[in-house]
Amino acid sequence: MTPKTILSRPVYGTLSPQAGTHHLFVADAEGGGAILDMAKAAPEGFFAGAHIIYIPREAGAAYTGPLQALKPAQYYEGPSIAAALPRQKQTLAPARMGRRLYLAGTEGLIGQAMQAALDAGIDHGSIQTEQRGSLARRVQCVHCKGITEDVTTQPVRCSHCGLLLFVRDHYSRRLAAFQGVCINAEDQSEIPPIEEAFR
């Protein structure tokens, strides 16, 4: 069953070439495929002003060659989101208006790359996003504020304080995380079954 969603849950689109003078792509895993699909519609010379930051993860081996074949002005492969973020921030810090941002791949990647872009002064509405691959969630525990990465179950145990959290669809761009609220706060002897929910 598709879960009923709410208005704070991000809605992702399909990458499309934007007017602009420079183009920064940040993608992970299957997100590489989103860039390749967009490239088919891109005008001549589009990638000459592009910079691709790519985190292949397990699924990425098939994409690295074709991405480099787009001949972007700059191409980088990183081992993890955390390793790639400083590069993204340093790219945006001196950038000028006209630089466009494209994010593709897991929700965790899109969320964290967008968080860094907001800090650089980019309005979230102007960022192109496309979700591909895992729907595993980053979850902020509303109680202890710790963030649990790659959450696939409902409920989930907070990796910081240990409370059993119901994962809501309520999402914060600023935190790049969904909200987790103690599921059995009113009676902690109630232990609901933990089931796989986000893949």
Partner: peptide, 29 residues
Amino acid sequence: QPLGTHLYICGPAGMIDWARARAAALGWP
């Protein structure tokens, strides 16, 4: 202009249209 700049235009309609069109073409959201 540095990333995070905002553009404000006040003047005749022709000037507003011109500035908005050029800003859009040059990648201003």
